[in-house]
Write a protein that binds this DNA or RNA. Structure first.
Lengths: 347, 347
DNA sequence: CTGAAAGCGCTTACAG
DNA sequence: CTGAAAGCGCTTACAG
């Protein structure tokens, strides 16, 4: 590989001058700059970022550890993060924890050893010791979507509580009284928030939530399928199921279809996280939409200010209910779908 | 940050011995090893991968440049790549080209400067000069899914030609004669292969493909929507539309739904790329499934052998037709959906 | 405006 | 089994 030394030789200048020319340092003569550029061109020189990073102690890279890349919610988040990071001059390295604490550990450790300038993490598990250690350490950390209570790092997330209350109002107004839920891992903040808010909203309507109507899921499709099968095996199956993320809703659809049942005639379905496909499932799915891309952008900006040593605070953005047809016909006409969600993931 | 020198001081050994102990070098006494580990623990030492990479000239990292992370096909591919890479001891850095040649260039250049050990790329554009340069340069390169004809690098891809012929047979047997297609960018090999194979298969049946029935798309949802709107505006709209990737099929569904039309009664729809949602759209979508995860795994193994200096060849895997209900009722009962596709993306 | 030199944190022949 | 030393490719005070 051709190094800066080769460029120096070729251009008849010192490596110091070559380095300055390449980094746009003001005190380089036009002549020197031209000779450097010519040498770079003829040699096909490509600066070694590894060496530069070692010297400058910054890599121009941020890490993003998410729980599941196959989850369209996180895919959209990751994309927004990359775009905003690129705009600010950072590259991003994504680690996929696949909802596993050990993989989360693996990626956080790897990213730290790689000397990323900052870390964005949506913890798969509130108990991952490496993530806790990272938040306490010198590398700037920002939590996005999920967080670890007590850890010393800003949090950028959506609050789904109001939207969940709206959802329960909606279900109640449609006459549903036997309402089941598929939860996420209780080790995650979003998992806990969603079940807690749901339980409270049901209580406000005096609707019970028996143990049999609670399916313990893990935010992945298979768990949604299994939980739904158990609901359907009950002597008194629920009227409607609330899957607290989009993949578990997909699993629920699988289970319902496998029995030849219809949504919403045989059983209703609501979800958390809006994704483009929910407009085109049979029937379109009523769901709670998060400002996903905005979360990603805000998180990156928060991390960038942390890296710059500026004071940085947490941000909470609202989520909102998108009524479609999967819980039955609404009393009021549904809001126009396209305006509410069509652009979000495909802008 | 605590460095290897601090560990040496703390343990009363030289940095050389600390380095050997940390790297599992055989000639280190048990006593020394224990003291090193104790010092690492008490100091919270984390090796600096940047420094190691500079010294060893390998980063333990491979790059993956794909055209669109929001495309579930590429998401699944990326995930398989990461899993296989991790199994082989590599990290992967993903660059999202968003179907733009300039972004592809940006990422390939960045990855090369970062001194990745090898590069996996699915070119957004056959004319990206950086990608061509990378393929010609010293860093091992493997193309996955798409490739650049003439570039000197192995290719791991699926061949969709037979499956496309099966699809056209299927459409023909259902009585469709006015058949339209939404193509991908002709700058991509997959874009060209799909339209070419489609055209040939139509010709075998003596079915014409008028210019008005060809929508030029870019593998993204919006282009599928626009192309479909134009088809629907035609004095004689097609019986059925073949969208040559899953996102353009989503866009087509958007356009069809926006006019209050039904699939397949008013217009049929077939797609390329199977994804879990296609089982649950209204109606379930007939599509061509690629062995996506396998492509990712094979590509990583090919790249790893290239890195190891072993001879490496290209691989072509077959794609196959999955008949569902979006083109009309099949003459023969549809194959069971779950076995064919359910596991692929959610294993 | 330019260059010589130190040093970032590691690894690894080389010598003992 | 262990250590002193060179060197990976850069950047950046320091001196001129």
């Amino acid at each position: 590989m051709v190094s800066i030394k080769d460029v120096a030789t070729e251009s008849g200048l010192s490596v110091a001058t070559v380095s300055r020319a390449l980094n746009g340092h003001p005190s380089v003569s036009d002549g020197a700059r031209e000779r450097v550029l010519a040498a770079v061109e003829s040699l096909g020189y490509r600066p070694n970022v590894v060496a530069r990073s070692l010297r400058t102690d910054r890599t121009g890279t941020i890490g993003l550890v998410i729980s599941d890349v196959l989850n369209p919610y996180f895919t959209e988040l990751a994309r927004a993060v990359e775009e905003e990071a690129r705009a600010l001059g950072y590259s991003v390295i994504i680690g996929n924890a696949d909802e596993r604490a050990d993989l989360e550990d693996h990626h956080v450790r790897g990213l730290l050893e790689r000397r990323i300038d900052g870390l964005l993490v949506s913890p798969a598990d509130g108990r991952s010791p490496m993530t806790l250690e990272a938040a306490a350490g010198p590398t700037p950390v920002v939590f996005v979507d999920r967080w670890i209570p007590g850890a010393d790092a800003p949090v950028v997330r959506a609050d789904g509580r109001d939207a969940i209350r709206d959802l329960v109002d909606h279900l109640h107004s449609l006459g549903h009284r036997r309402i089941a839920v598929i939860t996420g891992p209780t080790a995650t903040t979003t998992g806990r928030e969603r079940i807690d808010a749901f339980r409270e909203a049901l209580a406000e309507h005096g609707i019970p939530l028996p143990e049999a109507y609670i399916g313990r899921g893990d935010f992945q499709a298979e768990s949604g399928r299994l939980a739904t099968e158990r609901f359907l095996d009950l002597p008194e199956p629920p009227d409607v199921v609330f899957a607290t993320d989009n993949l578990m809703a997909l699993g629920a659809l699988d289970a319902i279809a496998a029995r030849g049942l219809r949504v919403p005639e045989d059983i209703g379905l609501a979800a958390f996280d809006d994704i483009p496909w929910f407009s085109h499932t049979d029937p379109p799915i009523t769901t709670i939409a998060q400002p996903t891309a905005e979360l990603g952008r805000v998180a990156v900006r928060a991390l960038a200010s942390l890296i710059a040593g500026e004071p940085t605070s947490s941000t909470v953005l609202p989520a909102h209910l998108v009524v479609r047809r999967s819980c039955g016909e609404p009393a009021t006409p549904p809001q126009t779908d396209r305006a509410a969600t069509g652009g979000a993931a495909r802008e």
